[in-house]
């Protein structure tokens, strides 16, 4: 046995690294280096005539003029950048609250009351997860048309006098779309947490005289605080980069989000600006991202 280990000792040291190598190369080539390119372009120069980017791959050559320019626009009152940024912040906040308000009761129901239908419900709840986001939004585009089902139903039951143009730049439609799109991402971590709460803890609280509401407020809610936080992170991070929901459901300047700024600056060949905006977005999201990774790691330790 010992001799075997001794003989294979050197090979053993390279055994697992060799397994990690292809993926590491992939990550370097298609994640790390591309992000370096973003920096090289954001901190690089511009061709004065054609306005094409002049990337600088040597960090010593980096200049921060155009990046600072983009950044300062964010602080200019009522500039397009600032408006888009504040709008994104508002939409994301409202949509996250909406996701939580819808997601919590649903997850609670699933964990506590679905009973023998639990598996069936779980499948139904997981289903939207794996449906194409585009298809789910496309379904709503049809429903929300002027002569679509939503207007027809609302007019028929008398809630609306005449059909409303839901798809013509209504912020409420965008927030609704975001909630619809991301609420499943909120439900799963909440469900996983609520399902793990020990029933005897709840019974103990009830035995000691706490009412239903008091048990919820003093036991269930504090125990699910971490899942609420994780769920909020999970929906907030992608929402911040979402530009397609807005394009599909509103498509006006007055509703354009931060992601739309990035896309439109790339499409109008303002590559430099686009790169800077991406860096700004990542810098803003760095703190929630790190928090999320840490809480995910802690959750994994708890499970293990």
């Amino acid at each position: 046995m010992r001799s075997k280990l001794g003989r294979g000792g050197y090979r053993l040291q390279l055994f697992w690294p060799a397994f990690a190598a292809p993926a590491t190369v992939w990550l370097l080539a298609f994640f790390v280096v591309p992000f370096f390119v973003i920096m090289a372009i954001a901190f690089g120069g511009l061709d004065p005539v054609f306005l094409t980017p002049d990337p600088r791959y040597d960090p010593l050559d980096w200049q921060f003029g155009s990046f600072a320019n983009v950044l300062s626009h964010l602080f200019v009152r009522e500039s397009i950048y600032q408006q888009a940024f504040l709008r994104t912040l508002a939409y994301v906040t409202l949509a996250s609250i909406g996701c939580l308000l819808i997601g919590y009761p649903v997850a609670y129901f699933m964990a506590r009351h679905a009973g023998r239908f639990k598996t069936a419900f779980l499948v139904a709840f997981i289903a939207p997860f794996w449906m194409s986001y585009m298809m789910r939004m496309f379904a709503w585009v049809n429903l929300l048309q002027e002569e679509g089902y939503v207007n027809r139903i609302l007019v028929n039951i008398g809630l609306l006098q005449s059909p409303r143009l839901w798809l013509q730049g209504k912020p409420s439609t965008v927030v609704f779309g975001l909630i619809y799109g991301y609420v499943p991402f909120m439900i799963l971590p909440l469900y996983a947490m609520l399902d793990r709460i020990d029933r005897s803890t709840l019974e103990a609280a009830r035995d000691l005289g706490a009412g239903q509401i008091q048990t919820f407020r003093r036991i269930t809610l504090p125990l699910s605080r971490q899942a609420i936080f994780a769920g909020c992170m999970i929906v907030t991070l992608p929402m911040f980069g979402d530009y397609y929901t807005q394009t599909l459901l509103a498509s006006t300047r007055g509703t354009s989000m931060f992601g739309n700024l990035i896309v439109s600056s790339l499409e109008s060949s303002l590559v430099n600006t686009g790169a800077s905006l991406v860096l700004v977005m990542i810098a803003l999201l760095m703190i929630p991202m790190v928090f999320y990774l840490r809480s995910a790691a802690r959750a994994r330790e708890l499970v293990a």
Binding site: P34, F240, Y243
Partner: peptide, 15 residues
Amino acid sequence: FITPEIAVAVALFLY
């Protein structure tokens, strides 16, 4: 995995 996809996409596009 958790970087917003648009940032990854723009990085790859520029790359």
